[in-house]
Amino acid sequence: MHKFLVLVLLVLLVSCGDETLPKPKGYLSLEYPELGYNRLNNSRPYRFDVAKNTAIKNLPQNWLKVRYPKLKASVDITYRPVDNNLRELLIESEKLVFEHAIKADQITAPIEYSNPDKKVYGSVYQIMGNAASQVQFHATDSSKHFLKGSLFFYTKPNYDSILPAVEYIKNDMIHMMETLEWKD
């Protein structure tokens, strides 16, 4: 009985101490490198500026993957020649945006872009919520070229956690459109 009493007292003494508190929620810690751009030099029918902190993967059919290794994301660039099919390409592009409506909380009205001097016309969409792609854009010269860009993260979407990275890359995507030039 004496050993039992000593054991109970020992347990009480050891367990009495600081209160156990729940740990605070952790936040995603990402590094956002300083902005700086390089001109994309390739044999594609288009060129634009890409952030210095990206890695470019060339794909068939004049497609590209602009990777953000530190952010675990990429902007997938698809190119299609326009051959009396501009209307279909625009409908397909918009359809791809709205396929995310099931998971999205909101899809913003498109930000329209127009640069008549360079013959670049397009739209940028932001998809808010836990969708697979959070930002998409398309650009065209209306006669020969059509380009689409889609942002993807290499993780299960958690919009609140990735929102700062979405905004960072969205600005890069807008810069891509603003510096886009067609090669003839």
Rank of each mutant, 00 (worst) to 15 (best):
S142E: 13
Y159V: 01
N41A: 13
D141T: 01
E31N: 08
P81M: 06
I91Q: 14
E34C: 02
S29C: 03
K57A: 11
V166S: 12
E31D: 07
L30N: 02
M176G: 08
N85H: 00
V11C: 10
R80P: 01
D83L: 05
W182E: 09
A139W: 01
M173K: 12
A73G: 09
K65R: 13
H2D: 07
K25Q: 12
E99M: 07
K183T: 15
K144A: 06
A51D: 10
Y125A: 06
L59A: 11
N41I: 13
V97W: 02
M128C: 13
K103I: 10
H100Y: 10
L10W: 03
V135W: 05
E19V: 08
G129K: 00
S29L: 03
N85G: 00
L89W: 01
A104Q: 08
L71Q: 07
S93A: 15
E31Y: 02
N85Q: 02
F152P: 04
D76G: 12
H2M: 06
K103A: 13
Y32I: 01
L151M: 12
N53P: 02
L40Q: 04
K156P: 10
I102Y: 11
L96R: 07
V8R: 13
A101L: 03
P22S: 14
I107V: 04
T140M: 00
R87V: 11
S143I: 15
L12I: 06
N158P: 10
A131S: 14
N84E: 01
S133I: 01
S123H: 12
Y113A: 06
A104G: 03
K70Q: 14
Y68D: 04
S93N: 11
I91H: 13
R80D: 11
H2V: 13
Y68C: 04
C16I: 01
H145A: 00
D141N: 07
Q61R: 15
D83K: 09
L28V: 08
N42H: 14
S29V: 05
L86G: 00
D141F: 00
Y32L: 02
K25S: 15
K52E: 04
Y79N: 04
F146R: 01
E99Y: 06
S15H: 07
Y121M: 03
Q136H: 14
L9R: 13
E112W: 05
L10V: 03
V120R: 00
Y125N: 09
W63E: 15
Y46E: 10
E167V: 09
K57G: 07
A131F: 01
E31H: 05
S133E: 08
P24S: 05
S74H: 13
